[in-house]
């Protein structure tokens, strides 16, 4: 097993394209666990943390570009980013312990393609784009189009995600992400839910996005959930309708972390609670 430390995206792409058994190392919080368990045996590990453009958070066209090697702790310490997209930052902040925060990245969380990835529903409702570099150049793809199944991505040969772009925060908008775990920390989401809303001048919800995690092989961006909110003030009736829609949209499995019935119920509960926070943020109340 070789260890490579490219200093440019082009070098990384060349290394990745040259070897189908190569693996990209960002924070390593998933990769090293798999290595240790013998689940993966790459021929080469490509550490992207020496590529300077991938280690920074920068403002771009009113939005934010977050390098693929930026650890979530750095996002949490970035006041301006947090002010614009608190839901995304909070979701990233939920990934593992303080120690994991020092290493784990948004791009890694996305490309690991776990159904339970905390940051993914939050990024999806924020309308985040993943920038992909590959042998044929660079392209931007909606975050929800990256995971294609449990542990699988739509990335082609030689491609890697180099950054995540969070668009400009719309006026009178807010986002939130909540997950359910059995403990208060250190668990994988049993259910996750991201909600983003924008309000019109009358305080009615003019746009909404709702995404559910850990209730299907990949994240669910639910139009039926969003429709329950759009045109309403986010009143109790709308929230109850949202909860019912989220429960209906969830297609979970029974496993060691939860039952189908529990996950469907809690998807509704979290949707309602996350929506309340997102609406309050849109109103500038939180």
């Amino acid at each position: 097993m070789r260890f490579e430390t490219p200093t440019s995206v082009d070098q990384a792409v060349a290394l990745l394209a040259a070897d189908p058994e190569a693996r990209v190392l960002a924070g390593g919080t998933d990769l090293l666990v798999r290595l240790r368990a013998g689940q993966v045996a790459p021929s080469v590990i490509i550490d992207i943390k020496r590529i300077s453009e991938m280690t920074v958070i920068s403002q771009e066209d009113g939005g934010w570009r977050i390098g693929a090697a930026v650890p979530s702790a750095e996002m949490n310490e970035h006041a301006a980013l947090k002010a614009d997209w608190p839901g995304v930052v909070e979701a990233a902040d939920l990934i593992g312990s303080t120690q994991i925060q020092g290493r784990a990245t948004l791009a890694g969380n996305l490309c690991n393609a776990s159904p339970a990835a905390d940051s993914v529903p939050a990024m999806v409702v924020a309308g985040a784009l993943a920038r992909i570099a590959g042998p044929n150049g660079t392209r931007d793809v909606a975050v929800q189009d990256i995971p294609s199944g449990v542990g699988k991505t739509s990335l082609g040969k030689g491609e890697l995600v180099t950054s995540i772009y969070l668009p400009p925060k719309p006026a009178h908008s807010g986002d939130a992400y909540l997950r359910f775990i059995p403990r208060s920390e250190m668990d994988i989401a049993v259910v996750g839910c991201g909600v983003a809303v924008a309000l019109d001048d009358q305080g009615k919800i003019s746009a909404a996005r709702v995404a559910l995690g850990a209730v299907a092989p990949t994240v669910i961006l639910s139009q039926s959930c969003a429709d329950t909110l759009i045109g309403t003030t986010g009143d109790d009736a709308a929230l109850d309708a949202l909860a019912a829609a989220a429960t209906a949209e969830a297609k979970p499995i029974d496993d060691k972390r939860g039952t189908i019935a529990f996950r469907k119920d809690v998807a509704g509960v979290l949707a309602k609670r996350a929506a309340k926070i997102a609406i309050a943020r849109a109103k500038g109340e939180a």
């Binding site: 403990r183 920390e185 250190m186 668990d187 994988i188 060691k256 972390r257």
Partner: peptide, 15 residues
């Protein structure tokens, strides 16, 4: 199925 501290959930400080 849960031979690790991730899914064998002993109390953490915040619990």
């Amino acid at each position: 199925q849960n031979a690790g501290f991730l899914d064998y959930r002993i109390p953490v400080a915040s619990d």
